[in-house]
Design a protein around this nucleic acid. Structure first.
Lengths: 155, 155
DNA sequence: CATGAAATTATTTACCC
DNA sequence: GGGTAAATAATTTCATG
């Protein structure tokens, strides 16, 4: 990850569909060189994928919430199975497994408040491993699309 | 948003860099038709952008946390200015503005625990509008890259 | 008016310096 | 890292139902 790689990664975070030729021109290298660098970044796992960012409203997902859940027992089996089964529910956007008084934060979206309520009643209230959960409606979610590398901690 | 649009949106969420020709072939329409549909989806704001997903470790961001913050007063000025200034800190990945006992959840990443601690001391402890915050280390974060449309609530 | 086929223009990619 | 040429893709035009 030298300066050229960082510049390429930044440009692909901004717009993953711009042409390799454009990226090459912006960072000041030949298209063939740029293509090879992108291929290596992908192979090394630095670039994990390219994804379209879709408006949640257009997917009938106008209401978002964060559900803070506590589960017991905190055994590997119960934790792993909770993560996997919750992540595959259609309403779930992401699952944070965290330290602290809550065990998980689950980011969910639904058509409206009624569907959110029904979802929580059907999928959370009934789960035996969940000993408690609190739901917070999300008014706004700002996401940074372009992340800069942080300074190397060894320098 | 008919079935064809949904199929195109799903494919672009899976891999935003696949060619228009491949997408057209997979959904069973002509390339020109597909290109026009994608253009309209973009114009209508259904597709908000295309972004490379980068490994946080490669960006020297190996440690993630969620900071739940309470601020006062909860006036528009203070809320707006908190959102904007926090979102532009390099360590911040996203900011949730929420209802409930906490006012914000801030998703952050840093090089390591020491840098996370320094970041919180420098950027949170010192802010006058913050009346309290709790930090939870993230062990794991599962994100769904492909979101299906939810059933229309009117039907 | 949306679709699809063909022609033109542009980009990607493999190979060698 | 760069240059070139063949393969591939994007884009425009225009005919069709």
């Amino acid at each position: 990850m030298d300066e050229l790689d960082s510049a390429i990664v930044r440009l692909l975070q901004e717009d993953a569909r711009q042409s390799n030729r454009d990226i090459a021109r912006k960072v000041g290298i030949a298209a063939s060189t740029c293509l090879e660098r992108i291929r290596l970044l992908r192979k090394r796992g630095v670039i994990r994928g390219y994804h379209a960012d879709i408006d949640l409203g257009a997917l009938n997902r106008g209401v978002q919430a964060i559900v803070a859940a506590q589960i017991r027992p905190l055994s590997r089996d119960v934790v792993d199975s909770f993560e996997r089964s919750v992540a595959q529910l259609p309403e779930v956007l992401s699952v944070f497994t965290i330290a602290g008084s809550d065990d998980f934060l689950v980011h969910v979206s639904a058509q409206d408040i009624d569907h959110l309520h029904a979802f929580l009643l059907d999928r959370f209230t009934s789960r035996r491993e969940i000993v408690g959960f609190r739901t917070s409606i999300i008014y706004q979610h700002l996401t940074k699309q372009v992340l800069e590398p942080l300074p190397d901690p060894h320098h």
